[in-house]
């Protein structure tokens, strides 16, 4: 029987990420971690075949540093015992490719320091492998993922950017008007 972790357990696991996984990825001769090797090691561990040939091509030179850092953090997240119980077929190039969009929106260290970002990462991985966190219904899990989804939030902020800028313009006008009024008091005396 597969025991799916609760979301709190997954968050706790992600937040315990060792500093080695947070070290700068090796990119164009700079950095410490060879991300592609790490990914393939994790794949070998999850597939239970330590001697399997390299299976996942990351093309690291086409990826950003932030994306490679997120991939490394994902490798740590996947070291949770739960992922050894399930089939690793989902862990293919498609998964590793869809991290680019989100990586561009969040500073890498926030994935392991910010509670909400850790939750987002945990929910995203569980959703990708097709499982619902223990104690939640699929609807609840989906709603909660929507709530913490950075891509979605940034889309809303972008969409409402004009309205916010209008509000800030009003704020600025009001401050300027107040400054003018203060300067004019002498004139009215």
């Amino acid at each position: 029987m597969i025991i799916v972790p609760t979301i709190s357990e997954m968050i706790h696991h992600i937040k315990r990420c060792p500093p080695e996984f947070l070290a700068p990825p090796l990119l164009r001769g700079r950095g410490e971690i060879h991300t592609e090797s790490l990914v393939n090691d994790i794949f070998r561990m999850l597939s239970g075949n330590p001697a399997a040939p390299k299976r996942i091509e990351l093309s690291t030179e086409k990826r950003s540093k932030a994306e490679l850092s997120l991939i490394q953090i994902c490798c740590w997240a996947l070291s949770h015992p739960f992922f050894r119980q399930i089939d690793s077929g989902w862990l293919n190039d498609v998964f590793w490719s869809q991290l680019a969009a989100i990586a561009a929106l969040v500073k890498p260290e926030l994935w392991v320091t910010d509670e909400e970002r850790s939750e987002e990462l945990a929910r995203m991985i569980l959703k990708c492998c097709g499982y619902v966190p223990a104690g939640e219904t699929p609807e609840e899990a989906l709603d909660r993922f929507d709530s913490v989804n950075t891509v979605k939030r940034m889309k809303v902020i972008e969409e409402t950017r004009a309205a916010n800028e209008r509000a800030q313009a009003i704020r600025r006008q009001m401050a300027e008007q107040r400054a003018r009024e203060a300067a004019n008091v002498y004139g009215r005396e």
Partner: peptide, 14 residues
């Protein structure tokens, strides 16, 4: 948040 997005992105070395 929009600014942070830019920072995270520009830290990407691309």
């Amino acid at each position: 948040a929009l600014d942070d997005r830019i920072k995270a992105d520009s830290g990407g070395d691309l």
